[in-house]
Design a binder for these strands. Structure first.
Lengths: 128, 128, 128, 128
DNA sequence: GTGGTCTAGACCACG
DNA sequence: GTGGTCTAGACCACC
């Protein structure tokens, strides 16, 4: 379901959080689908249960999943995480524009580059 | 010359690296200009010399500056860091498009959002 | 008769307790009315009988219902739970005022806010 | 600086969070004051460092403090946590009104009770 | 020295 | 069996 990249410098719980949120956002996991239990996922990733627990906590606080103690974790409805996504997008844009300004890119050439990369990535996504 | 933000989550050396590279990229520091010595800058920022040393090392490895042992650090010529900038920009764009695709943004609305934020940030930059 | 919200952080037995006490307090269940048996209610809510048993125990200890062994559980008379209600309300008020004091709210603005929210919630309650 | 109540059913990290946020909100701790280090506070409360770490994380995410790795935790400026406080107050009010509605309290008698308790608690606060 | 992450193993409430 | 909390002890990056 998920594979970890130990060369990645980011903490494990963050990788798990990111991978799962992607699966949810792109629709690979339907609403109210049950996620693997904390212990189960920890076992299959050879990782400590606390680490998965933390990942699930982050996902819950961001609205991607909801937790029912004694039953498990389930993916939330889309409306629960729409806001989170928007703010993530905005900060990504700001970081990009900051870099672009520093490099003296004109608005036009920036938009053009983005346009190209957008179409390239959409093609790759379709091949996966 | 530089001000630090201790609430910033990034390590200090990274802030210094970023600030200096900005000054170089935007032309505030001309080619072959001598930078303050490690000890001097460390003193004026009330920071450990090791921190500045690390920042300078990063800048050198990215091609922004060059070191002459016994004489100091100097701003490189523009051609030395053009590549670094492009790859930084490209990875920023990829990260952005990834988020945008995840949230189902159309190319058009994404470009429009970026356009708006670009102009907003260019105004703020002029006020600084 | 009752619907559960599995996303609610509180334990199930507490939700059942709350819902039933509301029905009793607002007069939807008259004094000495017979409540559904533990097994019956557990079945209709698809819940473990232990859970309902615990809810009924709580209700009894708070004076909302009384149990006749071998016959079932019945709604108590109003005087039995008047005290419970008052103390619940008082502790809710104390918790509220504590927060308000912490935030530096004046008594007047606090009372005004409460007044507004009161009327808003009374409208919503009528729509249910 | 803080005392724990082991009879309290809430988790320890939550007690610590609450106590510290109170100290900050009521002004007992000035802006930019340094809090005790994670290990230090853990030692003085005879508690595991991870527990304090979690409390500090919560405080940071709510805007009450900010963290500088390698230096310590410091109390934030008031504007950082004003929003958090407001939302805490609103949910406290909703919970109160819910109880009041259930008990059939009229708006007037509710406001009067609150007014009394408000003044009572303000007196007690001055005696501390 | 600081905070951040992780592991291993434990106990608890809930269902 | 589930998630939630806690302890004990470890390693890391940063300063």
């Amino acid at each position: 379901m998920i594979t970890l990249d130990y060369r990645d410098k980011r903490p494990i719980y963050e990788q798990v959080t990111e991978k799962l949120s992607h699966l949810i956002v792109c629709g690979a996991l339907d609403e109210n689908t049950k996620l693997p239990s904390v212990r189960q996922l920890a076992l299959s990733l050879s990782v400590n249960p606390n680490t998965i627990q933390r990942a699930y906590s982050e996902l819950e606080s961001k609205g991607y999943i909801y937790t029912v103690v004694g039953r498990g974790n389930f993916v939330s409805e889309k409306k629960s995480w729409a806001d989170t996504l928007d703010s993530a997008l905005e900060s990504a844009i700001q970081s990009l524009v900051q870099t672009a300004l520093a490099s003296g890119y004109s608005k036009e050439s920036l938009l053009q580059s983005i346009s190209q990369i957008y179409e390239k990535m959409i093609k790759e996504a379709n091949n996966d």
